[in-house]
Amino acid sequence: MIKVAVSLVSTAVGLVLLLSFKSHTAGAPKSALAGTGSTPASTAGPGGAATHSPSPRRTKRPRGAHGTFTGDPIDTPYGTMQVAAVVSNGRLTGVTVLRHTDVGGRSAQIDAAALPVLKSEAMSAHGADIDVVSGATYTSRGYAGSLQSALDKAGI
């Protein structure tokens, strides 16, 4: 088993993505995006209110918040970031990085880092033990430098 480094770019990014939806009900988007810790309250977008886009395709009775909720822009060591969370019936089902200011060419790393820091205790330990990798099919040549190749070599 080897330790595989997982993207953890900034605590601030992590905090803004530590979302809590359990206590919210449908029609209450205002409080659906809650900052934690020392992060400034991030309940509304630049316009002062979260965007709320109910999906007309849903016929099941909603059991929780539903729609897209936009957080406040926050400053991070890598520039200004803003994220939106997609929620279906109280469940987080998506993340979009709306904008970030490029600092030192690092913006591309921040958006890719958005997912792993979601509510993840294990990830916040700066690593993850993994056994096998699922990804786009690599060629034999591409395999040589792949994460899967590293895992295979780590066998006994």
Binding site: L118, I130, L147
Partner: peptide, 8 residues
């Protein structure tokens, strides 16, 4: 980002 994972 080759060599990194999104999630587990």
């Amino acid at each position: 980002r080759p060599g990194r994972v999104l999630t587990v």
